[in-house]
């Protein structure tokens, strides 16, 4: 009986709080029919926003992957002074609210910030453009790859890498042939999380993007713009794109959980 009540309550809570809003997105997007939806998606400004979002994400991704793998490797395989500090620093972005994060970047890299002012005479502007979007996106997604790769490295241990060392492999060969295949699943999920978050970041990006129509509007910003312009179909149509992306993320997570390597016995 308790079991039944608890399950029912849980389903009710999740249904009302989580599932219903998602259904509402699709309902509103298609409220004026499929043609209106199509027209909204194909709106030049929306397409430009999608393009910018994809470009920014493709720039953030390699940054984060290289950093995440490098940091996970150093932390998992070596003991050095400041190892714990590094771990904490990487986790900081989780604790910082998006607007505060955006403000931080503006205060240092903006035209009035110490670093921004230094670069200004050379005509280098970091904020209110694609660079700014990429930088804050790198901040908000900072721990994602590292967090997924580190535990995998911990679980696999260093034996295979040491074996490769005794067989004469150099650093790159060890990474390419031994480490990378071992961390591939964790890395893949880290990439998925980074992508989803980078594409969807709103608060931090809205501080540093500069909101120039058709130029520095990412998809979430474009959604806000259209929503405030009373273009509900446009906003919700664009939202379905990001919602689909979120659902794909969840499916991938499920797939990786199910088919990814379990903590298999040591070979």
């Amino acid at each position: 009986m308790t079991r039944f009540i608890l399950i029912a309550l849980s389903l009710l809570f999740l249904g009302l709080m989580v599932i219903l809003p998602v259904i509402a997105i699709f309902h509103r997007a298609f409220a004026d029919g499929f043609d209106a939806y199509r027209a909204a998606i194909l709106d030049p400004e929306t397409l430009a926003a999608i393009r910018l979002t994809v470009i920014a994400t493709l720039l953030v991704l390699p940054l984060n992957v290289i950093f995440g793998v490098a940091a996970a490797w150093a932390i998992a395989r070596f003991r050095f002074v400041g190892r714990r500090v590094l771990l904490i620093l990487i986790e900081i972005p989780f604790a910082v609210s998006p607007i505060v994060a955006g403000l931080c970047f503006l205060l240092i890299y903006g035209a009035y910030g110490p670093v921004g002012a230094l670069l200004e005479p050379y005509g280098v502007q970091l904020m209110f453009n694609l660079t700014g979007i990429v930088l804050v996106s790198a901040f908000v997604t900072c721990p994602f790859v590292m967090r997924e790769v580190l535990p995998v490295l911990m679980v696999t241990g260093e034996d295979e890498e040491l074996a490769a060392v005794t067989l004469g492999a150099n650093g790159w060969q060890i990474f390419r042939h031994v480490v990378l295949p071992n961390i591939s699943w964790g890395l893949a999920y880290g990439v998925v999380l980074t992508m989803a978050r980078a594409m969807g970041e709103f608060g931090a990006v809205s501080v540093v993007a500069g909101a120039i129509r058709g130029q520095t509007m990412t998809l979430p910003l474009q959604i806000e713009l259209m929503y405030n312009d009373y273009n509900a179909t446009g906003a919700f149509a664009a939202a379905t794109v990001l919602t689909a992306l979120a659902l794909v993320t969840l499916v991938l997570r499920g797939v990786l959980n199910r088919f990814g390597p379990k903590k298999e016995a040591h070979a």
Partner: peptide, 18 residues
């Protein structure tokens, strides 16, 4: 280690699982 050309057999074999 890599330049010594010593073959090493690990206790748990450490075979490359992939």
């Amino acid at each position: 280690a890599g330049q010594r050309h010593f073959g090493f057999v690990f206790q748990n074999y450490a075979l490359f699982r992939h």
